[in-house]
Design a protein around this nucleic acid. Structure first.
Lengths: 228, 228
DNA sequence: GAGCCGCCGTTGGTATACCGAACCCCACGC
DNA sequence: GCGTGGGGTTCGGTATACCAACGGCGGCTC
């Protein structure tokens, strides 16, 4: 019986170097404010590989993946550049977001359980009660969490996956997309209406509310946010 | 003046080996019928690199990209496997497609020119007149071209990009997604209605028609198409 | 004869060396 | 003083060698 008593190693099972380099780079890039004029936007393979302590091969594969996702751009014989999204690209992302989330709301009316929909209240209420959270950066994060929750209700993994990659970029400009306090209050009211529509399983209404809510954000960004 | 008369070299500018390997592999994979039971679904890096005449490094980068796009799956120490999409995944793709295209129709009402919208007629008419094209494979291609055209009218590069990657997968099952002839005629009628809505700039109607049209396809696939 | 153990081949993961093109800077000439 | 050209340096692209783990197969044992 002694053999069964020894504690089994949890198995390190460290993922591949490529995957780890990818995660580290992604966190580093999304974490920094790339719209700061002093931001370092150029990277070098050899420098990065030395700092990560790995060879260039897995690092290059991680960079190629980030390149495909649009976070960086690898230019032959020039270097690796962190991508700053243009305002037009941000607006396009918000439009796609509106399309995906409004469809998610429609789907949610058909497939989400009552309990799942009820769970949305927590995301709005917890946020509403915390006035400190009204600071814009925090608001943006909470806002994104609410919308991600709606997308999750569609039970559609592809919708979630595409949306996540969009949020990744939208979050990068949150420090620039400053909303007035009135917008935040209006936004919370919108969220409550959306939840109500979902609860009554009114797919057409839920879809319309979500779409209009997000397109309002787009109009706001278009009118008041300046990039570049 | 002689200098200005010499013909300028078209610039060889052969893309990187990675890009070429990527294109070649993508064409090979999308071109084959992966749902044929006899299909060869396993690949090997060394074999492919030898057949392409390049080393494994650029080939691996191309494979990594295809892996991320979901066309293949690279499994450590096992091999590379061409991915067969499950029926559930196909349905999810059609759902996302419906979301993107209905939003595109809405956007098109605001930003597309009359001439652009008028151009849609050609895609429907040319197809309608060619009865031979009613063979299902052909229909599916023409169908996809029409829908891609609508998405292009949104003037939103991101919408187009995401949609293209979806069509890539949807087309792979076209040989299985056999529609009855009645469905084709109904589909053509739908297309005409969609064009009419776009021409009158009725965004709500255009969006709804596009969405319902695509969701009808989803319902049909769900009911009648069997995969795996 | 059946089942288990270990060897070995296969295959993707990683490290490293080399290559050639683009950029930068300085020297030279006008 | 300015423009130009050449050479060195920098950098990503590519090739290749080595590694480690998974799985199949054969032999050994009971």
């Amino acid at each position: 019986m002694t053999a069964t008593h020894i504690t089994i190693e949890p198995i390190v099972e460290s993922q591949s170097l490529k995957a780890r380099a990818y995660s580290a780079l992604k966190a580093a890039i999304t974490g920094m404010n790339i719209y700061d004029d002093n931001a370092q936007l150029k990277l070098e393979e050899r420098d990065l590989s030395a700092r990560f302590g790995i060879s260039r091969t897995p690092l290059r594969e991680a960079l190629a993946q980030l390149d495909q996702e649009g976070l960086v751009r690898v230019v032959a014989r020039r270097g690796i550049f962190i991508v700053r999204k243009s305002k037009a690209e941000i607006l396009e992302m918000i439009t796609v977001w509106a399309a995906l989330e409004s469809m998610s709301a429609r789907e949610a009316c058909a497939v989400a359980s009552d309990a799942e929909i009820a769970g949305l209240h927590d995301l709005v209420d917890a946020f509403k009660q915390d006035e400190v959270a009204l600071r814009m950066g925090e608001y943006s994060d909470a806002n994104i969490r609410f919308h991600q929750a709606i997308i999750a209700l569609s039970h559609n993994a592809l919708l979630e996956q595409i949306s996540d990659s969009l949020f990744l970029h939208v979050r990068a400009i949150r420090n620039r997309a400053i909303f007035e306090n009135d917008r935040v209050k209006r936004s919370i009211a919108d969220h409550k209406e959306i939840i109500a529509a979902l609860e009554t399983r009114n797919a057409d209404l839920a879809e319309r509310l979500v779409r209009e809510h997000t397109l309002k954000l787009r109009a706001h960004v278009e009118a008041f946010v300046s990039l570049d």
